[in-house]
Write a protein that binds this DNA or RNA. Structure first.
Length: 860
RNA sequence: GCGGACGUGGCGAAAUUGGCAGACGCGCUAGAUUUAGGUUCUAGUCUCUUCGGAGGUGAAGGUUCAAGUCCUUUCGUCCGCACCA
């Protein structure tokens, strides 16, 4: 055995062994392991940008450790990897560098796959999926047809988010709250276009309700999704308009305040705006509507912006009071939400109050008075519950009951009903780009929009295509591809030129892994139902809404289509923190600097000498603070990189990169190496080791060592399952290694310690563990070994340290026999030096004993 | 504004869920070995101290024999949503 730890050599060696598959446990029931419990461990698959970054390394290391532990614990484990390979960067590369998106993408995949292999990740590569491959997108298209058949895919002309840089539309979820594209960062414009949508709103209630089932998800993510779905319970009420047959419908969560309605407000785009406007107001209204339509959504919804609105001159009638009330239009009312019209109750709604004050609209009677106050003039809206007044016949009713009663009254009059409203909108999925799965429909002048027959799938992307700038989609310009025949009538038809949002591809990839190479079906339901749901999903928090909500939606639709027998795709979710690094920024110029160019003791701009801001920020090229995983692999190896990432911070927290700490982990692996090397050099091996060879009557040093070993087994096992505390698992291994360093080497217990150290290290640092296991004389792989269990008897102690407290303050400790009962403990404590000192001449009022831990004397 | 998370040494962090605060590591200090250096080993490292102790988990109160942990108030940081009627 080499006396020096040489990660480069041993990692290459073992990766080659693993590539030949000789070191794998079968993970498939078809491979003869149907009785084992299944475990599906999944990392969010990457976009093949070309190089792996530290965020990937962290994500995949976490999942790999979990997968490896479960394998050693005897589960059959599915741990696959694939590529989220459609998307704009490929197309942009085509435009900028003249390389075909397909070529660019597959080159990147090649490169990233080999980088992944160098991290020692235990993927089953036979299940690799690539979303841009026709083998995959054929089924993406097939799934689209399922949605179409189910009435869940439709076309609609609508005002959509248009990204002027990438020349495509975006889903609401893909626009940040500053109105910028998640990808290009460009300010999004509003445009009226005919687009494809998926009816995710049909599943709003289920998507919300089933969040309750996701106990293994972070509360934060569940709240974010609930918020996004945005359920409101209320009523739909109709207000007659003076001189018009058509009524104005509003949605309100406060039907109990209907007697206080002072006015109605329509969104400027409301379909009745023009009709309710009187001739005197017509000119002003037209100007206002024009102004509002020129505003972006961002400007319109900007924070602290005063509400703007004008009267239309029209009048409505409050159907409960019979009063005439004015109709206004205002920019704060959104046409997309509810009915695009609201009833104004200034006394009980903060926005209405603000608007009424500003427009000097009358504030009608208070309906739900604030308890214990006599209101002379309202200073703010009162929005809490209370008891109704000014609302005969509902006076005296509690506001919650009044809601139901008034809805019922409205229903009886035929002017309203209970209604539930969601913020969630349908999912806009069409994109005017090339590098995506073509939407499989044909437009026929005679038959209309016709689905491509299943037998004709996939609708292939044409290979021979010119990318000549960021104009309209290249597909729309390729006549040969565009022109086709109608599958129904056989006449001339045109292909749909829009492709699907890449989030469609990633909404079902986890269903494909269980049956990744199926040519006849999207997947065999038996296989997918066997492996699904994913037992542990790991990925970044940035997908809290988009990907995770879409995937849940797909799962529910496919369940309703009879393809799946479960409701939720991801049992447990771990959102791992970001990998951050020290960032140097000139606060004046805004320029970032590479750490290598800066003296950390005195961070100054090398050019101007100005002092720099120093802080931790997510690694990125633009911040000049990235660390290339490649450089770490070359210098220290994958095992050190893995150990550092696991040890440095708990998985869900942000992790600060630190070269000194990486060095520290390398030192630890070196210590482990030397420990084993010395043991082997003295003729030690664990080939014939058995626990039975350990005497039950050990001398104290051996007994202490054995306790340390089995405590480590217990703690590492706890930390690596359930709550996933990899950082403390690593520190337990360090403790075990420290204990072994201090112990005498010539005992069976020492051999046990070496054996356990290597076994427990195996999921975390797979290469060094494989090598050490081998040099210890074992022929089978460490990764196919059974996970060790601790011996309860070894944890038993003869003596414990008893803490002696007086009035809750620790005054000292004594060693006492572990078997001592309460009385005995009290006696030991009283007789001890500490007891003598503090208890003599004192009256003890009470004695509290925590067995095995402490004794507390309450004295006067 | 609404909702959520979090505040512990010089730094990253631990703390059997109410029972010796600071495990483990980084950094630092001193020493030893080797030395051209990286390395390796040993000891120390919350603060104050009259060496008996005393204080200490953002701050202030409270509950308790006992609080980093529970409750109230408050300050600060971060994240999500934000005219959703």
């Amino acid at each position: 055995m080499e006396s020096r730890y040489n990660p480069t050599a041993i990692e290459a060696k073992w990766q080659q062994v693993w590539a030949q598959g000789s070191d794998q446990t079968p993970d498939d029931p078809q491979a003869g392991t149907p009785d084992k419990p299944k475990f599906y461990a999944l990392s969010m698959f990457p976009y093949p940008s070309g190089n792996l970054h530290m965020g990937h390394v962290r994500n995949y290391t976490i999942t790999d450790v979990i997968a490896r532990v479960h394998r050693m614990q005897g589960d059959r484990v599915l741990h696959p990897m694939g590529w989220d390979a459609f998307g704009l960067p490929a197309e942009n590369a085509a435009i900028d560098r003249g390389i075909h998106p397909s070529k660019w993408t597959y080159q990147n995949i090649e490169q990233m796959r080999s980088q992944l292999k160098r991290l020692g990740l235990s993927y089953d590569w036979s299940r690799e999926v690539t979303t841009c491959s026709p083998d995959y997108y054929k089924w993406t298209q097939w799934l689209f047809l399922q949605f179409l058949q189910a009435g869940l895919a439709y076309q609609k002309e609508s005002a959509v988010n248009w990204d002027p840089v990438d020349q495509t539309v975006l889903a609401n979820e893909q626009v940040d709250n500053e109105g910028r594209s998640w990808r290009s960062g460009a300010k999004v414009e509003r445009k009226l276009l005919r687009q494809w949508f998926l009816k995710i709103t049909d599943y709003a209630e289920q998507l919300l309700h089933d969040l309750n089932k996701l106990n293994g998800w972070p509360e934060r993510v569940r709240l974010m999704q609930a918020n996004w779905i945005g359920k409101s319970v209320g009523a739909y009420l109709e207000f007659p308009v003076v001189g018009m047959a058509e009524k104005i419908g509003v949605f309100t969560t406060r039907p109990d305040t209907v007697y206080g309605v002072t006015y109605l407000v329509l969104a400027p785009e409301h379909h009745l705006t023009a009709q309710v406007t009187t001739p005197e107001q017509q000119a002003a209204v037209e100007v206002f509507v024009q102004e509002v339509s020129n505003q972006s959504e961002l400007e319109r919804t900007a924070e602290d912006k005063p509400k703007r609105g004008i009267p239309t001159g029209g009048k409505a009638i409050n159907p409960f009071t019979g009063e005439e009330i004015p109709i206004l239009i205002a920019d704060y009312v959104l046409v997309e939400y509810g009915t695009g019209a609201v009833m104004g109750v200034p006394a009980h709604d903060a926005r209405d109050f603000e608007f009424a004050k500003q427009k000097q609209l009358p504030i009608k009677a208070v309906i739900v008075p604030q308890p214990d106050t006599t209101v002379v003039e309202l200073e703010a809206a009162y929005t809490d519950p209370g008891f109704l007044i000014n609302s005969s016949p509902f006076d005296g009713m509690a506001s919650t009951e009044a809601k139901t009663a008034i809805i019922q009254a409205a229903a009886e009059k035929g002017i309203g009903k209970a209604r539930i409203q969601y913020r969630l909108r349908d999912w806009l999925i069409s994109r005017q780009r090339y590098w995506g799965a073509p939407i499989p429909v044909i437009h026929c002048p005679a038959c209309g929009t016709v689905p491509v027959p299943e037998a004709d799938l996939p609708v292939r992307l044409p290979e021979d295509i010119a990318f000549c700038g960021r104009g309209p989609s290249p597909l729309a310009q390729l006549e040969a591809w565009l022109q086709t025949s109608c599958p129904v009538c056989g006449g001339p038809g045109k292909r749909e030129t829009d492709t699907m949002d890449t989030f469609i591809d990633s909404s079902w990839y986890f269903l494909r892994y269980p049956d990744a190479t199926n040519q006849r079906q999207v997947f065999d339901p038996a296989k997918t139902n066997d492996w699904m749901p994913v037992d542990q999903y790991v990925g970044g928090i940035e997908h809290a809404i988009l990907h995770l909500l879409y995937s849940r939606f797909f799962t529910k639709v496919l369940r309703d289509r009879g393809l799946l027998n479960f409701d939720e795709p991801f049992q447990r979710l771990l959102t791992q923190g970001m990998v951050q690094n020290k960032t140097y920024k000139n606060p004046v110029t805004g320029k970032y600097f590479l750490a290598t160019a800066i003296d950390p003791a005195n961070p100054r701009d090398p050019q101007t000498g100005e002092s720099l801001e120093v802080f931790y920020e997510k690694m990125s090229k633009s911040k000049s603070n990235g660390v290339d995983p490649e450089s770490v692999l070359v210098k220290y190896g994958a095992d050190t990189a893995r150990m550092f990432i696991l040890f440095k911070a708990p998985p869900e927290k942000d992790l600060e990169w630190d070269d000194a700490d990486v060095e520290g982990q390398f030192r630890f692996l070196n210590r482990v190496w030397r420990l084993v090397a010395e043991f082997v050099a003295k003729g030690g091996n664990t080939r014939n080791f058995s626990q039975a060879s350990i005497s039950s009557n050990l001398a104290k040093p051996q007994k202490d060592l054995r306790r340390a070993i089995h405590t480590a087994i217990q703690k590492v096992t706890e930390d690596l399952q359930g709550e996933y505390q990899f950082n403390t698992a690593v520190s337990e291994l360090m403790k075990l290694s420290n204990a072994l360093s201090d112990a005498a080497q010539d005992s069976p217990v020492y051999a046990e310690g070496i054996q356990m150290l290597v076994l427990l290290l195996a999921p975390l640092a797979p290469h060094i563990a494989a090598e050490l296991w081998h040099v210890l004389g074992n022929s089978a792989s460490v990764h196919t070994q059974k996970w060790p269990t601790f011996d309860l008897a070894a944890l038993v102690v003869d003596e414990i340290t008893l803490v002696i407290q007086i009035l809750g303050k620790t005054r000292g400790t004594i060693q006492v026999p572990a078997t001592a009962n309460r009385e005995a403990l009290e006696q030991y404590a009283r007789e001890s030096a500490v007891g003598q000192r503090y208890l003599t001449d004192k009256v003890v009022k009470k004695v509290i004993v925590v067995p095995g831990k402490l004794i507390n004397f309450v004295i006067t």
